[in-house]
Each structure stands twice: as structure tokens, then as C-alpha cells.
């Protein structure tokens, strides 16, 4: 994978869900997109994942520019992590993680090994053959993250991945995701409305505003990896947090008037 850059502009409906969005995501980095609800964060993910098409503008992955029909090998570069773990209750954890391979038709011992490795990375060996109903919320979330990696995607799209969890569990999972990321070195694009989570995870944060959905700031986070949870008390971290919170706050006030 060379340099991933994506450029799209206006999705021109009566509602301007996204206006002149320019994102540049370097290879193997984590880019966070933070903004208030309704700013079109999820639309970005869905555009990237080709669930919907942009009204205008271009999306470029590596050297490939998105067209009407996107070839399978480009699509396969993406893994999608949902807001909820969304595991299938009639499959064991292992079968759930393997599920995407089955759907796209990846078979053989080397792909079985990928699943084994993922289970090991997620420290889920002991519960791999259990069904989701007997697992804890954190395990399920990790399962959801690992499932997205089963096809060895180069780019992970995370749409408020742990949004339904409490702060403590979410931050713990964020850290675990960082650990997985450092082992597997994918590119991650992730969306959140939680400023702290965005800073904690990302090498670069895009701040979005609503009506129309647009990017108002691009802030590189200059904190080296590996990061631990304790950095959230770091003065540098707090400064970023203040800066981004202010940006979002100003916008909110101006729209309320």
C-alpha cells in the first residue's frame, strides 16, 4: 500500500450532508474524525465503504480512484467495525471471527491461522469456542474488532466502535485496539463524538461541524505511540482536549445563535 488519500466533495442533495470534505489519511496511521451528532461522520465511513456513492468528488485508495463498480480487491482492503459488536448469536466466537472469510471465500490452513492469531492477539483463546451469549460485553467488542480483521484488511473503518459502552470499558478497549494496531499495522479511520477518545487513538484528528457537514480543523496529535491510558492526564493531552472541545463548542453556539 502506497499513500492512501481520499478526497471527496459535496454530496449534493437537498441536505448537504457533507460539503467539500478533504481527508488525507497516511498509510498505517490512525485518523480520528470527531464532531457533534448529525455532522455526517458516519456518511464518510459509508462513502468509503461504498455503501453509498458521493454526489461529486473523488475517493482515492492507493492509486485507485473510486468508480461506479469497485473491484473486489479494493473492497477487500476495508474492514468494518460496527458501533455494537454485532456478533451472530448462533456462531461461536471463533466462527464469528472467521465469518467474513467464509463470505468472501477465503479458505485453507493459512486463513485458519489468521483466525488463530487474531484470537491470540485479542487474548480470547479460553472463550473462542463459546457462544456470544456467554461472553462479557468487552469480549464481544473485541470479537467484533477482530472479526473485521479476519480478511486481513489494510484499512479499518470504525464507526463509533465502542460508543455503547461506559467510559472505563471504552478506554480500555481503545488501548487494546492500539495494541492490536501496533502488531498488525493497518490504517485506521475511526469516528467518534468523544474528544478524549479521538486524541487518545489518533495520529491526526479531523474536527467536523454540522449543517452542512464539513471539516473545520485538522489537528495532528503529537504524542508518540505506544500510548497508555495515563496520557489522558498529560498536560499536552489536556491542551489538545481543550482546543478541540472549544472548536466544537464555538460551532454549537453559533448554530444555536
Amino acid at each position: 500500500m502506497k499513500n492512501v488519500s481520499k478526497v471527496f466533495q459535496t454530496r449534493r442533495q437537498t441536505i448537504h450532508a457533507l460539503q467539500d470534505i478533504n481527508l488525507n489519511v497516511p498509510e498505517k496511521s490512525i485518523v480520528g474524525i470527531v464532531g457533534p451528532s448529525g455532522c455526517g461522520k458516519s456518511t464518510i465511513i459509508r462513502l468509503l465503504n461504498d455503501i453509498i456513492k458521493p454526489t461529486s468528488g473523488d475517493i482515492v485508495v492507493d492509486d485507485y480512484t473510486y468508480e461506479a463498480k469497485i473491484p473486489a480487491d479494493v473492497i477487500r482492503k476495508f474492514g468494518f467495525i460496527f458501533q455494537r459488536p454485532n456478533l451472530l448469536p448462533w456462531l461461536t466466537l471463533r466462527e464469528n471471527i472467521q465469518f467474513p472469510q467464509k463470505i468472501v471465500g477465503l479458505k485453507g490452513p493459512e486463513w485458519d491461522r489468521v483466525v488463530d492469531d487474531l484470537i491470540k492477539i485479542g487474548r480470547l483463546e479460553d472463550v473462542a469456542d463459546q457462544y456470544p451469549s456467554s461472553l462479557s460485553g468487552g469480549m464481544l467488542q473485541r470479537g467484533g474488532v477482530l472479526r473485521a480483521m479476519a480478511t486481513r484488511p489494510e484499512i479499518l473503518l470504525m464507526d463509533e466502535p465502542f460508543g455503547s459502552l461506559d467510559d472505563m470499558l471504552r478506554e480500555q478497549l481503545d488501548i487494546e485496539t492500539l495494541e492490536i494496531w501496533q502488531k498488525l499495522e493497518q490504517t485506521i479511520i475511526f469516528i467518534t463524538h468523544n474528544v478524549r477518545e479521538a486524541i487518545l487513538m489518533s495520529g491526526k484528528v479531523y474536527v467536523m461541524a454540522t449543517e452542512p457537514g464539513r471539516i473545520i480543523a485538522e489537528i495532528p496529535i503529537d504524542i508518540p505511540y505506544p500510548r497508555e491510558l495515563k496520557i489522558i492526564a498529560d498536560p499536552k493531552f489536556l491542551e489538545y482536549e481543550r482546543q478541540i472541545t472549544n472548536l466544537i463548542g464555538e460551532i454549537d453556539l453559533s448554530t444555536i445563535k
Binding site: 465503504n49 455503501i51 473492497i75 468494518f80 460496527f82 454485532n86 463470505i103 468472501v104
Partner: peptide, 14 residues
């Protein structure tokens, strides 16, 4: 059937 499950299948191009 939960819409999330369909979305999963869609994201996998099933």
C-alpha cells in the same frame, strides 16, 4: 432480523 446484521453482510459484499 436486525438491520445491523444486514449491514454486516453488505459491508462484506455478501
Amino acid at each position: 432480523v436486525s438491520a445491523h446484521r444486514y449491514e454486516l453482510m453488505k459491508s462484506l459484499r455478501a
